[in-house]
Design a binder for these strands. Sequence first.
DNA 1: GTCGTTACGTCAGCAACGTTGACATATTAA
DNA 2: TTAATATGTCAACGTTGCTGACGTAACGAC
Lengths: 170, 170
Amino acid sequence: MDARGAASLLFLREEEIRLGMELLFFGYRDFTAGPDAILAELDMGRAHHRVLHFVGRHPGITVSELLAILRITKQSLGRVLKPLVEGGYVVHAPGRNDRRQRLLTLTQKGQALERRLFERQRDTISRAYRESGAQAVEGFRRVMLGMMGADARARIEAGQAKDRESGKVA
Amino acid sequence: MDARGAASLLFLREEEIRLGMELLFFGYRDFTAGPDAILAELDMGRAHHRVLHFVGRHPGITVSELLAILRITKQSLGRVLKPLVEGGYVVHAPGRNDRRQRLLTLTQKGQALERRLFERQRDTISRAYRESGAQAVEGFRRVMLGMMGADARARIEAGQAKDRESGKVA
DNA sequence: GTCGTTACGTCAGCAACGTTGACATATTAA
DNA sequence: TTAATATGTCAACGTTGCTGACGTAACGAC
């Protein structure tokens, strides 16, 4: 290949990457728009949704584990967790083995809100999946996983393995 | 299919969606982590990066157009645009036809910073693309596009059409 | 049983980035 | 001349991150 050809390939590649950047920006923004609207009415934000999501998915999770997943400080978590507890969305119980721990669980009210938020987002994702086809969805998963650092990737893969064990996912 | 089968399918589907939610959350977070670190050293944030990106990609863009793309208020834009202009990253010139407009362009300094940020993010995306393969990348694009509202989708598709015209993309 | 470490909470202050509302200026267009 | 448009700016506020510091309760080792 001559120099012009190589430069042209590089250019193609750059356009490809910039397209990816914009897909992520616009896609993520619209993906979060639905829940954001519901949360705003309850004087909550995206951070509350994250807590509801991860507590819902990991009932009995400790504060430390939640901090590790979210990668925020305990002060930041405190600010969203406190209203969630006071509002009756989340409860905490002392750990059986280690009573310093606060095991977090969603109340019925918390589950109901989480579900409402989930369903809004499900509509967005379902549409995208349906329009794209199963093969595209598999590609989407691979690319998003590749975008992650080792940390998050391991967490996702661990979750997938657990799902397979329990027969949730083929 | 019996009722149990249908419920199981629904459950599968829910796990699928929740996986998608987490892929987006973790993926987007790690996708933005690189530039964020560079920007922090310059006392800038993600919002500055967005301006640099879109001004770089659309030289001579007006303030209104930029506001429409970012979907933020002019006050919010002002807060990041002003330091960028004062720092010599962006210049504005009055529009030829309409002198009320401020046509925004990156300076050399702005281009250099934008490129530095781009390259960091390119590494992340390149790795994800390389690990996943061309077919997966195509799937990723379709799904992300499907996630967007009509607005953003039209914008992306218009950009793609323009690239094809100018021979940038096959 | 004392003592260091760990798990968690909280107070104070700060920064980035989004919002609304109001008002000012320059320019265009009717 | 006048109304509308493009842009800028002041003020005040909310969400969600951050650092630093301090306090309490419980675990674990000696």
